[in-house]
Amino acid sequence: MRYSSLGFTLIELMVVMVLIGVLVSMVHISLGDNRARDAQQEARAMLALMQGLREKAVLDGQEYGLRLEPEAYQQMRLQGATWQAVEAPVKLSAGVLLTLVLEGRVHSLAAGEQIPQLLWLSSDENTPFALHFDSPPLRWQSLYSDGLGNPLLEASEVTDAY
């Protein structure tokens, strides 16, 4: 006596589920953690900006600054006795926050202040600082400056930033 089968066997269903799981895993691995990639891109862009500000300050004989907020930054230039914005504020990638350390203490990055926290002087000096690129609670990248020369970019070991 012959039975006709309708539908799928349990083994066929399990094979399909395993294949779907493998494909999902491959997609997840290829995309990686976007927060780490975003923080790395933001840190590299900030490093290039800081190197440019250093060069402009020396070549133009003017003082430049960088005003930082937790989720944005803005270039500034000293005009007479007041700081003027050079361009509109630049927003960081979603989920990336800045933490500024001056003189060994975390500095508050309040929005709306009109003076820069970091300065590049025409004498080729700048404010010593540590600037961290975080996605709470993790710290991804850090920029450091001793006040002379270009800042250094370091990849942080993925640690708890707080």
Rank of each mutant, 00 (worst) to 15 (best):
E113P: 00
V15N: 07
S30E: 10
Q79V: 13
W140M: 06
A57Q: 06
L102S: 08
Q51L: 02
L78S: 01
P136E: 12
L109Y: 01
Q79P: 08
M46N: 08
S108G: 01
D60L: 08
A48T: 13
E87G: 10
S123P: 06
V24H: 09
P89N: 06
V27F: 01
L6S: 13
A94D: 12
G65E: 03
L148Q: 14
R2H: 14
Y144T: 15
H132D: 06
L13Q: 02
L31V: 15
V18R: 05
L119I: 13
S123E: 09
S25E: 07
V22I: 15
V90K: 14
L66M: 08
E55R: 00
G147K: 10
L92G: 03
A36D: 09
V106E: 15
Y64F: 09
A45S: 11
M14F: 11
H132P: 03
V106C: 02
G147D: 10
H28P: 04
F129P: 02
K91C: 00
E42H: 11
D146W: 01
M26E: 04
T127A: 02
G21T: 08
V27E: 03
L13I: 13
P116C: 08
G32F: 04
Q84E: 14
E42M: 12
L92N: 02
E12G: 11
E12T: 11
A36P: 01
L53Q: 02
S145C: 12
L118P: 04
H28D: 09
E42K: 15
L53T: 00
L59Q: 11
R67G: 04
D146T: 14
H132Q: 13
R35D: 05
S123R: 14
H132C: 03
L109H: 08
F133H: 04
Q41M: 13
Q141M: 15
S135N: 12
V24R: 11
